[in-house]
């Protein structure tokens, strides 16, 4: 662990006209830390995630990222070329719907290899070997390497999407409802896999989810959002076991007990 955060976010706001997307969000993210952003739908979680991952430009506020050379760079002042380079090397983005993050018409191997080729890898054998390695790490059989993701189940697609994002060894991964739409047993395996990968690779991650169980399992720290504002933040266990804000109390008590 270093003494400096990986990402510094300060007073970030995004307005859609007069409507609030997210307002005045401030936090630091440290290397290897998993931060969960929870809240009901429409609370601004995804807007915040899109702003942080520079897919959206915020209306005001700053976010600076510590590059591999330990220099902080202001995300919204970078050129588009630099941002996109960051997106496909040092960052990953796992979409809720795997079809948004995968190329559905090219094989699984090419999906994993694309980032390698994008950063200049030009050796077919090595790219394929890396793809095989990553498929096995996300528990996809090697003989599925030449199949298109269209032929994959939802859980497999999501695992493939994760492999595709992690192949360049990113330091920060954004996840938007990574387990959304999967049935519980598949969810459990995926969470197990994610937790293993995050620990092994020392990834920092920002996970947006409305599922408090996912947040508890994956994250060390969490932020609760409502109407675009952060109503409570702190260690995950503390927030879930001893919620202070009335909204968080409501949220925690709304979990269905089986």
């Amino acid at each position: 662990m270093t003494d400096e955060p990986l990402l510094r976010v300060s007073a970030l706001s995004k307005f859609y006209g007069s409507r609030v997307g997210c307002e005045n969000v401030t936090f630091d993210l440290w290397p290897g830390e998993v931060l969960a952003v929870v809240g009901e739908s429409g609370s601004g979680k995804t807007t915040l995630l899109n702003c942080l991952s520079t897919r959206l430009l915020p209306s005001s506020g700053t976010a600076s990222y510590r590059m591999r050379d330990s220099q902080f760079r202001e995300l919204y002042r970078m050129s588009e070329a630099e941002r996109r380079f960051l997106m496909r090397t040092d960052w990953g983005f796992v979409h809720q719907n795997p079809a948004d993050g995968l190329r559905m018409t090219v094989s699984a191997g090419a999906n994993v290899g694309e980032r390698l080729m994008a950063v200049g890898d030009r050796h077919y054998g090595k790219i394929r070997a890396t793809a095989v390695d990553w498929l096995s790490r996300v528990e996809i059989d090697e003989d599925r390497i030449d199949d298109e993701p269209r032929a994959f189940s939802g859980g497999m697609r999501q695992r493939l999407q994760i492999a595709r994002n992690l192949v360049t060894g990113p330091r920060l991964v954004f996840m938007d409802e990574p387990t959304g739409g999967l049935d519980v047993s598949v969810q459990a395996r995926l969470l197990d896999l994610l937790r293993g990968l995050v620990t092994d690779l020392g990834l920092a991650a920002i996970v947006v989810t409305h599922d408090l169980a996912v947040a508890r399992l994956l994250s060390q720290r969490m932020m609760v959002m409502k109407d675009g504002r952060v109503v409570e933040s702190g260690l995950t266990d503390r927030v879930l076991d001893d919620p202070r804000a009335p909204y968080t109390q409501l949220l925690v008590s709304s979990i269905l007990q089986v």
Binding site: R88, V106, S107, A110, M117, A118, Y124
Partner: peptide
């Protein structure tokens, strides 16, 4: 057009990769 502007041509090799794989 953006990919041309930013010289992001990794995708072109994806096509060639697919050829070899198939």
């Amino acid at each position: 057009r953006k990919m041309h502007a930013l010289e992001e041509y990794g995708l072109m090799h994806v096509k060639l990769y697919e050829d070899i794989a198939r």
